[in-house]
Nucleic acid binder design. Structure first.
Length: 616
RNA sequence: GGCUCCGUAGCUCAGCUGGAUAGAGCAACUGACUUCUAAUCAGUAGGUCGCAGGUUCGAAUCCUGCCGGAGUCACCA
């Protein structure tokens, strides 16, 4: 039976051999679903074959069609239009296809292949809560974890927690000065720990800005302006901000001092740091749960930020790196059109890329994974290009399995989100908004009044989060996406709830009648409608969709597919009667079909991290 | 300036390893719930696929140039 494209292709290859004694490779055979305006189920493109068999396309299509009709059991008819050979399958093909799908447990999944993939995503900072940008990162990362699992990989989801540096010191300092020793729940019982710490981060920045504004009219500032012959003052002060923080600011000095105390291991500073980090991580854990993020292993920047030095030594020995007179260590990548890159400062401390070199090596020691996938925004493309090149030159054994899943930043209608300027869409707020939207919509519809309030709450969460997750994941990751907070996330049309609704309709039917599903009666159905064939064609594609989405690191392919399937089902549901079908065979067949649609929808949405409700 | 990515309907996006008349959703307008859940279905309207060349039997898709937008080219992370 021909259910996979490869089998169809080899049938065509054989036909060419028999008819013309010509060998063509199966790659030369192009297949596609027949367009709606033409008769037929599958179309074979004859144009590419014309080169091998010197004939005009239409004549070739006709001879090929005649041969296939005679020799391939399931092909019952054909027609040829120009170079397009449309073949028509018999009824047995369709029932056979349904059986083929139905019989497979874990349909679409490949068996375990014994290979390991490590996926890093999320990577939060511990000085503020997550925002919409993190949501995209997390949803993509979590979906990739499940996609790789579907392909037989053992996956290790991991995150690196950016828990050190000047930013967290700012929050610490502000809390120390302004917090009055209050704990998160004391200040506001409703506020999560990450928001609490984030609040102090913002307070620091406000205080710093005030200080800076005041300083701008001081004698010291005026002196600098005179010395540097500044023309545009506003522009100068904008650019001077960093230098001011490092050299002139009182607050800046305090924060820097705190960072130095942290580096020295000052007990009091470390204790405060631990405290604030744990508040943030507690808060973020909540957000993770709702987003479906889960990590097998956390790496902390505070523990790994200097471990790359061993690789630097290795690179110096093998000549990948060189040392300058000032003591700094560099890699020269100009031979492949990239720049020189510093890997160790003149004072011997690490830079960002040194840490990444180190963690790569550490992770390999920890897990011996052969694939390393980094889910990181596209602004870091160059960084990863350099990183991967360096690891390759260092001869690391996993260097060929590295991949940067680069995704576009989420933008607001008026530009990029900037946390300092307060133009961020907070992750928790957004999730709450979408869930209450789902609640309001559901209340209007009144379908679930019989459920307990606890069940209803779970349901609203499923629908709201389903809408949000689908909204983000349906867009190709590599494209930057525009999110307008003023337009709420849709619940109708190409959305998560639309797909959930298809599932709910099926579950609702099955509550009324399951007997027909368990018998084999459906195999006798023979009056297939186009809407039923459309669904079967889609069901057949599911395994291919999973493997392509994985290979291309692109969950949006799966999201698009699931919409197609749900759409085909909604049309089917509308056009034909199922429980009250014309014949018992028809009823059994349609229910069997629906059950398989439900299971593929649930499986696919599950990979996207979206739960499916039984009613809505 | 170098490199990378993007430009498709009013908006948000599919389609891009070349194939038949470029597709969805939203928004607008029309119709379909006494019949399996209308978060649904059917329809109308909406397009110089950024522009100009080239390759090809055939280009939204591949190549070149240009225009517009974003990112990056830190002893920041």
């Amino acid at each position: 039976m021909i259910y996979m494209q490869e089998e169809m292709k080899s049938a065509v290859v054989e036909a060419i051999r028999a008819l013309y004694e010509v060998e063509v490779h199966s790659d030369a055979i192009q297949l596609s679903a027949t367009r709606k305006d033409f008769d037929g189920d599958q179309t074979i493109l004859v144009f590419p074959l014309v080169r091998h068999v010197k004939m005009n396309p239409e004549a070739l299509a006709n001879q090929l069609g005649t041969y296939l009709k005679e020799h391939v059991k399931i092909i019952h008819d054909f027609n040829a239009v120009k170079g397009f050979l449309n073949v028509v399958f018999g009824e047995d093909y369709w029932t056979g296809l349904l059986q083929w799908v139905d019989e497979r447990p874990d349909y679409g999944y490949k068996p375990k292949n014994g290979r390991r993939a490590l996926i890093e995503y999320s990577s939060p900072n511990t000085n503020k809560p997550l925002h919409l940008g993190h949501i995209r990162n997390i949803l993509l990362g979590a979906a990739m974890v499940r996609l790789f699992e579907s392909q037989g990989y053992e996956v290790i989801p991991t995150q690196i927690i950016n828990d050190r540096g000047i930013a967290i010191c700012k929050s610490m300092l502000a809390w120390k000065k302004l917090g009055g020793g209050r704990l998160p729940k004391e200040e506001d019982p409703e506020m999560k720990g990450d928001h609490f710490v984030g609040k102090y981060y913002v307070l620091f920045d406000q205080a710093f800005k005030e200080e800076y504004m005041k300083w701008q009219t001081s004698d010291e500032a005026l002196q600098i302006i005179r010395d540097r012959k500044v023309e545009d003052q506003a522009d100068f002060f904008k650019k001077f901000k960093n230098e001011y923080f490092n050299r002139h600011s009182l607050l800046g000095r305090e924060a820097i001092e705190m960072l130095q105390q942290w580096e020295r291991g000052d007990l009091k500073v470390r204790a405060l740091w631990q405290q604030m980090n744990s508040w943030v991580l507690d808060g973020i854990a909540h957000t993770y749960k709702r987003l479906g993020a889960d990590f097998q292993k956390n790496y902390y920047e505070s523990e790994v930020y200097s471990i790359g030095k061993a690789l630097v030594v290795k690179g110096l020995e093998s000549g990948v790196f060189y040392r300058q007179e000032d003591g700094s260590v560099w890699a020269d990548l100009e031979d492949i059109g990239m720049d020189k890159k510093i890997v160790l400062r003149s004072d011997g401390t690490s830079v960002y890329i040194t840490q990444d070199l180190g963690t790569a090596s550490l992770r390999y020691d920890d897990f011996k994974a052969e694939r390393f996938i980094y889910v990181v925004a596209d602004e870091q493309e160059y960084h990863f290009k350099v990183l991967f090149e360096l690891l390759k030159r260092l001869g690391e054994p996993y260097a060929d399995g590295l991949h940067h899943l680069s995704y576009g930043m989420v933008e607001l209608p008026d530009g990029k989100m900037k946390s300092r300027e307060g133009t961020v869409v907070d992750a928790d707020d957004l999730m709450d908004d979408v869930v209450s939207l789902a609640r309001a919509e559901s209340k209007d519809r009144g379908e679930v009044e019989s459920l307990s309030s606890e069940e209803q709450k779970t349901l609203y969460e499923m629908i709201g989060m389903g809408a949000l997750k689908y909204f983000i994941l349906k867009v190709n990751a590599k494209k930057r996406m525009v999110f307008n907070p003023a337009d709420s996330v849709d619940l109708q049309g190409q959305t998560g709830p639309y797909i959930q609704n298809a599932f709910v309709r099926i579950k609702s039917m099955l509550r009324k009648d399951t007997d027909a599903v368990t018998t084999g009666e459906w195999k006798r159905y023979s009056q297939l409608q186009q809407v039923e064939k459309d669904i079967l064609v889609l069901l057949k594609e599911y395994p291919t969709v999973l493997s392509t989405a994985t290979a291309e690191y692109n969950p949006s392919l799966l999201a698009g597919y699931l919409y197609q399937l749900a759409k085909a089902f909604h049309k089917f549901y509308h056009d034909v009667r199922i429980l009250s079908a014309e014949t018992p065979e028809a009823k059994a067949f349609r229910l069997k079909l629906a059950v398989n649609v439900a299971s593929v929808l649930q499986s696919g949405m599950g990979i996207l991290g979206i739960d499916m409700p039984d009613r809505m």
